[in-house]
């Protein structure tokens, strides 16, 4: 065992401060770092500044629980369960959060630029759109703390005279990246199965990396097949053992998304009182995965258990 392995409580308490800029790993209904997110809510972290590409269930919980002050994002929804996240939508309309819109490629490039130490990164994506013309963050806060001086700039291609206009984007170097992975070696080598989304770029760009994982395996075991590994051990600061730690979102080869839970959440998310009751029922009482999973129950866990050949639960009733 190494000192990187710790509980969610210790990881959040040690590494996350009010006001931090946080990159959430996963994508809409897949591999959201839900165990860590529920702990952030239990510790009542405030004024978080989320930077995501397409985020879903985890972002919904954090917004609903009042932990979020501002977000840079490309997409806020939980797929068919909530094409636009209800809590995101409400917070946007009530202006309780500040939102800056980018595209998925732009956000991914920004994480990549941060990871590579680039001063900016260029793309053709978004020319002439309101993504380059309209600004969600107030001008007064631009350039303060982690907020980039410019959302982006449109310039002439500086290399190729015939290249026309390009969009240049500021890099992202979040304070913390939260990732949920299938495997972690004891020293922190990480293996993500299935799609990595932008988790690897997010982790490499961040100052601090917290990874929750389905299983911790011996470091020499994960190094027997290094071709399949996603992150080098020294990039990772905290490893949190969390079987089913992405529930109710999916984790390839381990479990599917939980349609029962997500449909239930869809109902309760439409009203602040019922959402607060959800927090009382599902978030505040359970510090450990064992207690949380007892609440979810065997029956629903077995329904979503992944088939080991397919990686999801075939025939799962997803209506």
């Amino acid at each position: 065992m190494t000192d990187k392995i710790m509980t969610a409580r210790k990881a959040v308490d040690t590494f996350i401060k009010d006001g931090d800029q946080i990159a959430l790993g996963g994508f809409t209904v897949n591999r959201n770092p839900m165990h860590i997110i529920r702990e952030i809510i239990r510790q009542k972290k405030k004024k978080l500044y989320l930077v995501v590409h397409s985020h879903g269930q985890g972002m919904e919980l954090l917004i609903g629980a009042g932990c979020v002050e501002r977000i840079e994002l490309a997409y806020g929804g939980v797929a068919r369960f909530a094409p636009t996240g209800y809590l995101f939508k409400k917070a946007f309309k009530d202006k309780t959060i500040e939102v800056e819109d980018y595209s998925n490629y732009q956000m991914t490039l920004r994480f990549m630029a941060g990871a590579m130490g680039l001063p900016f990164i260029a793309t053709k994506s978004g020319l002439e759109s309101d993504i380059v013309r309209k600004f969600g963050f107030s001008p007064q806060i631009r350039g303060k703390g982690k907020i980039p001086e410019h959302k982006l700039k449109v310039i002439n291609d500086p290399i190729n005279e015939d290249g026309g206009k390009v969009v240049v984007l500021p890099p992202l170097n979040p304070d913390v990246a939260l990732i949920h992975a299938q495997y972690a070696g004891e020293k922190g080598t990480i293996r993500i199965n299935g799609l990595s989304f932008a988790d690897i770029e997010q982790a490499k760009a961040a100052k601090t990396v917290i990874v929750s994982c389905e299983e911790i395996v011996p470091e020499d075991y994960i190094r027997q097949d290094p071709d399949r590994n996603s992150l080098a051990h020294f990039i990772v600061d905290a490893i949190v053992p969390a079987p089913f730690g992405a529930h109710p979102t999916a984790c390839h080869m381990y479990y599917d998304y939980d349609p029962n839970h997500l449909n239930y959440f869809k109902k309760i998310a439409q009203n602040q009182d019922s959402f607060n009751r959800y927090l009382d029922e599902w978030v505040y009482p359970f510090e450990t995965m064992e207690d949380y999973l007892t609440k979810v129950g065997f029956k629903d866990l077995l329904k979503i258990k992944a088939n080991s050949a397919l990686g999801y639960a075939p025939g799962l009733d997803r209506r």
Binding site: A74, G77, T84, K93, V99, D101, Y102, Y105, L127, K134
Partner: peptide, 22 residues
């Protein structure tokens, strides 16, 4: 609506702007 006076919110670009651009 606008950022100042939002009337309705949809999810946002996701990869749509990228696809439409590229």
């Amino acid at each position: 609506g606008t950022y100042e006076n939002p009337e309705q919110r949809f999810p946002g670009s996701g990869g749509a702007c990228d696809a439409a651009s590229l």
